[in-house]
């Protein structure tokens, strides 16, 4: 599929997906879009990820194939790089935490040394790390901030997040940094796919689709907060009714909210069937989550089977005379 098609087809798909709730709500299907779709999406997300993880777990890790990125544990007098080459499970935990929370591996690209030219040039990879980190963290913070709709009373951490996030007290309602950051990060992630020839070449429709869905999700959310407001008291009533399993749809929530909710549902439902499964997969990656202690501790391959080998006896049988000639000891004379 050509790059243009890869970029366009998913865009069309997402635009159609946006129209669905818009028309649906007009047709009076708000219960379907406010209750059925979100529940279904949530169940798909949960069930799908569970199936995916179990599916991965059904394949064993036959060998201990840690990728080592630092000095292994050796003599006492050799400095062991504990977190890039863990020896114990505890060190693996730290390595995984660095990987999951700070994107350590992408960060490796940050190293800066001798560069050509008069000014310092930064490799694009550094931006990738920054963009990815900015996106994932703001997504998480935004998700957690939404807890204000899902809990009564609202837990304290939400307050803290809102205060930090709205630190600059810009505008009314106050601008959340993460809102701006996530738009910027998504734009960056999208643009680099479109603009950098290498990345455009390797990108599939399934790389653009989630980006568009995220754009739809984020922009509809920002739209609701800053421009075309909806009655969020009712939004919370709906949200609370969903999480207390007593679904009831209040009248008069703006259409934009349904778009937002639908995009979220699409994203959640799409998760387990796509590359987005990396969210769970990153924890299972055998090159990262295993200690590099395979010489000190035996690793078992559950499907290890006996193989045909060329035994010493067969070997000696073939070469006995020649061995004797040069004085090599033999088992049988």
């Amino acid at each position: 599929m050509s790059a243009q098609k890869s970029i366009l087809y998913p865009l069309v798909a997402v635009l159609v997906l946006i129209l669905i709730p818009v028309i649906g709500v007009k047709l009076g299907l708000s219960y379907f879009f406010a209750v059925v779709v979100p529940y279904a999406a949530f169940i798909t997300f949960f069930g799908g990820i569970l199936c995916k993880v179990i599916n991965w777990a059904r394949s064993p890790v036959p060998f201990r194939i840690t990728t080592t990125c630092g000095q292994e544990k050796s003599f006492d007098w050799v400095k062991h790089n504990k977190f890039d080459n863990p020896f114990t499970n505890r060190q693996v935990l730290v390595r995984m935490a660095l990987e999951v929370l700070c994107f350590r591996s992408l960060f490796r690209n940050l190293k800066m040394e001798m560069r050509e030219g008069p000014k310092l040039a930064y490799g694009s990879a550094k931006w990738l790390w920054l963009g990815a980190l900015a996106f994932h963290w703001s997504f998480l913070v935004i998700l957690l901030r939404h807890m204000r709709f899902f809990a009564q009373p609202v837990p304290g951490f939400v307050d803290v997040l809102q205060n930090v996030d709205g630190f600059f007290e810009l505008g009314i309602p106050q601008l959340f940094l993460t809102d701006a950051v996530i738009v910027a990060a998504l734009t960056y992630l999208f643009l680099r796919r479109v603009v950098v020839p290498q990345i455009r070449y390797i990108s599939l429709p399934s790389d653009y689709f989630p980006l568009y869905v995220l754009f739809g999700l984020v922009l509809s959310g920002i739209g609701m907060r800053y421009f075309f407001r909806v009655d969020i008291v009712k939004v919370k009533e709906l949200a609370m009714s969903l999480v207390t399993l007593k679904p009831a749809v209040p009248d008069g929530i703006g259409t934009l909210f349904y778009v937002h909710l639908f995009m979220l549902s699409v994203l959640f439902a799409y998760f387990p069937f796509s590359k987005l499964a990396h969210m769970a997969g990153v924890f299972l990656s055998p090159t990262r989550n295993l200690a590099n202690n395979s010489r000190a501790k035996r690793h078992i391959n559950p499907w290890n089977y006996p193989v045909k080998v060329h035994t010493y006896e067969e070997y000696e049988e073939e070469f006995r005379e020649k061995m004797k000639e040069v004085g090599l000891p033999v088992e049988k004379e």
Partner: peptide, 11 residues
């Protein structure tokens, strides 16, 4: 933001 959101939610 408004310009981009407009496209999304014209209604």
């Amino acid at each position: 933001g408004g310009i981009s959101a407009l496209g999304l939610s014209a209604l």
